Amino acid sequence: MTKTRVLTGITTTGTPHLGNYVGAIRPAIAASQDPNVQSYYFLADFHALIKCQDPKRVQESRREIAATWLALGLDTDNAIFYRQSDIPEIPELTWMLSCVCAKGLMNRAHAYKAAVAENEEAGNQDPDKGITMGLFGYPVLMAADILMFNANKVPVGRDQIQHIEMARDMAGRFNHLFKNNFFTLPEAVVDDKVAVLNGLDGRKMSKSYNNTIPLFVAEKKLLKLVRKIKTNSLEPGEPKDPDTCTLFQIYSAFASAEEAEAMRQEYANGIGWGDAKNRLFEYLNEQLREPRERYQALMEDPGHIESVLMKGAERARAEAAPTMDRLRQAVGLGRFV
């Protein structure tokens, strides 16, 4: 039976936090263990250069993210885990797709339109001020990531659906121009049941808001951050609404259904905010203790991380290289003999 191909990219511009784990890492690792699925997970470090020109931050983020996924149990014998920048066929395919992609399609990309709108609101005479070709054309790079491995499904948030549709457009155009089904048309997979955690200030946990709790922060720092989580002014003994509380939201994302229900009763009984924060810290700290230790060991052994990623790159290139040979031949760039 042919396995379903599922591909996920992780942008390497920040330190993984609790929201990343609950919303993306945990479900992805679970899905990678499905014997009917061939999973591709890659560090999207070319994409990172669009947003970040701090080489130390990009380099450190790549190591942190790789160590995080490995510490949390990613099975690299099953899943193919690699760095985007280790696959030279990706930028080559990006150029081929650029040559069949209509500029008008890129003009409609959400990120580009938002950047233009910001310039217009600021009164800039040049609507493209500060916009790089990386930002403008990154949907083509994303299409190359997906189409290189003929992914059937790509788990994304709703804001990324447009990019999967663009990848389908480029794949269909290429197939039509060169008269063969070179590329599978990928499907976006949006799981509305995936949890979205709030951060310290009650907004969505995001490095853009500087309100995150890093996944493997040291124990003392974890306690300090949990104590900073915003709550209301209700006193101990007064019933509290768990459904509007960031503390309860984070707790229930990690706890079992029975544990969450017991905590819900504590809220009805009027648990004090100090006690609620201590309970959350103790629960998180216990849940994360073992993976944190594995993470720290991996961070101290970059050679091991490197070897895992290079093995993943070898497996990825074993597919990408013959694919590009076929595509070069199709567009007229094949060897003469």
Rank of each mutant, 00 (worst) to 15 (best):
residue 231 T to C: 11
residue 194 V to P: 00
residue 82 Y to W: 14
residue 116 V to E: 00
residue 83 R to L: 14
residue 200 L to P: 07
residue 2 T to S: 13
residue 84 Q to H: 13
residue 56 K to F: 09
residue 87 I to V: 15
residue 132 T to M: 08
residue 19 G to S: 11
residue 250 I to G: 01
residue 277 K to T: 10
residue 206 S to H: 09
residue 99 C to K: 06
residue 136 F to E: 05
residue 266 E to S: 14
residue 161 I to P: 04
residue 170 M to F: 07
residue 211 N to F: 06
residue 221 K to A: 14
residue 264 R to I: 08
residue 85 S to I: 05
residue 271 I to V: 14
residue 192 D to N: 14
residue 92 E to I: 11
residue 86 D to F: 07
residue 150 N to V: 09
residue 52 C to F: 00
residue 98 S to I: 00
residue 209 Y to A: 07
residue 45 D to L: 04
residue 74 L to D: 00
residue 296 Q to T: 12
residue 245 C to K: 01
residue 308 V to I: 13
residue 298 L to R: 02
residue 255 A to R: 03
residue 17 H to W: 05
residue 87 I to M: 08
residue 66 A to N: 09
residue 12 T to R: 04
residue 312 G to D: 01
residue 16 P to A: 07
residue 276 A to P: 05
residue 134 G to W: 02
residue 116 V to W: 05
residue 9 G to I: 03
residue 149 F to K: 05
residue 148 M to C: 03
residue 203 R to W: 04
residue 117 A to H: 11
residue 98 S to R: 10
residue 88 P to Y: 07
residue 279 R to I: 13
residue 245 C to Q: 05
residue 90 I to C: 03
residue 19 G to M: 04
residue 80 I to E: 08
residue 246 T to A: 15
residue 123 G to S: 07
residue 257 A to V: 14
residue 51 K to P: 00
residue 223 L to Y: 12
residue 143 A to S: 15
residue 85 S to F: 10
residue 265 Q to I: 13
residue 11 T to E: 02
residue 166 M to S: 01
residue 176 H to C: 00
residue 168 R to D: 06
residue 251 Y to N: 01
residue 6 V to Y: 06
residue 128 D to N: 15
residue 80 I to Y: 08
